[in-house]
Computed example of a mutant assay.
Amino acid sequence: MIGFATQDLLLRSSPALYVPAGVALCGALVGALGYHVATRAAEAGTVGARTVRRACSAVAVLVVPLLLLGFLAGFEVFDAGPMGTPLLIGGGLLLAVLARLLYVRGTGAPYPLTGERAALGISVAIVVLCAFWAVGGYAQQKGTADAEQLARHLYRRPAVVLDTPEHLHLGWSGVRETALPGVEPGARFRYRYEGLRLLAHSGGRMFLIPRTWTWETGNGLIVPFDETVRVAFHPG
């Protein structure tokens, strides 16, 4: 039986991590549609190609402040949140790559041009890195929000009475330890712990937290869900 970082469990278990993947897929769809429209416009004639190049130039101008804000946020000049820096830098570079791609397509030349392959590869690598960075930031933000929500509604979690063979030495606020009275020699369970709540049950283990758990100072306990302990559950 060991203590654990409860917030790490919450960060890893959030199903809302699918949201960044959905946003990325929607962005890819928009980019594919934009590429198709730009290609058709460029093939329609000189006017269409000129319009595409002007639009790409306007996007390129927008990239500069995005990258500047991203670097300032990275150096903590201002607080952009856990996802701000990677979204600004990665999004700016992605827009730059797409704008360059469509601009070159508007001229009828293949992309990438000679000499641009190295810059394209580095840009794509940075965009991928920023994507993982943003997903990690989103997981942190979502996990923190879930933990704060849990701390405000602990009464919704099942109450647990835990009997163990050995003394756990918890000393946690809100958790009461008592020696079981009338224990016969050779009996397995000798100590009872009350004031615990069930956070999760996974992989044959129970994740328990005290009823006074808080996000900032909360403790946690992992116990196996087998014959080594005796557990009773009660409504929260």
Score class of each variant (00 low, 15 high):
residue 39 T to H: 12
residue 195 G to F: 11
residue 46 T to S: 03
residue 108 G to L: 10
residue 214 T to E: 11
residue 129 L to S: 14
residue 135 V to H: 11
residue 24 A to S: 04
residue 154 L to I: 06
residue 124 V to L: 14
residue 31 G to V: 08
residue 20 P to M: 03
residue 74 G to F: 03
residue 25 L to C: 04
residue 202 S to T: 02
residue 147 A to E: 12
residue 158 P to Y: 07
residue 150 L to A: 11
residue 81 G to W: 01
residue 83 M to F: 02
residue 183 V to P: 00
residue 112 P to Q: 08
residue 113 L to Q: 15
residue 191 Y to D: 09
residue 225 F to K: 10
residue 58 A to Y: 06
residue 104 V to G: 02
residue 60 A to R: 09
residue 230 R to L: 13
residue 229 V to E: 12
residue 221 L to V: 00
residue 98 L to V: 10
residue 152 R to D: 14
residue 32 A to K: 04
residue 166 E to C: 05
residue 179 A to P: 00
residue 35 Y to H: 04
residue 56 C to D: 12
residue 146 D to Y: 04
residue 201 H to R: 14
residue 165 P to S: 09
residue 47 V to P: 05
residue 228 T to Q: 15
residue 230 R to D: 14
residue 46 T to D: 13
residue 217 T to C: 00
residue 86 P to F: 06
residue 220 G to A: 00
residue 161 V to H: 06
residue 134 A to W: 03
residue 206 M to Y: 13
residue 21 A to N: 02
residue 236 G to L: 04
residue 91 G to I: 08
residue 46 T to F: 00
residue 209 I to T: 09
residue 43 E to T: 00
residue 96 A to N: 09
residue 222 I to H: 11
residue 212 T to R: 08
residue 54 R to K: 11
residue 159 A to C: 03
residue 93 L to E: 14
residue 68 L to T: 14
residue 61 V to F: 07
residue 65 P to D: 10
residue 101 L to K: 02
residue 212 T to C: 07
residue 175 V to P: 01
residue 85 T to Y: 03
residue 79 D to I: 01
residue 182 G to M: 01
residue 89 I to S: 06
residue 52 V to A: 09
residue 152 R to P: 02
residue 45 G to N: 12
residue 76 E to R: 11
residue 116 E to R: 13
residue 123 S to N: 07
residue 181 P to F: 01
residue 220 G to M: 02
residue 172 W to C: 12
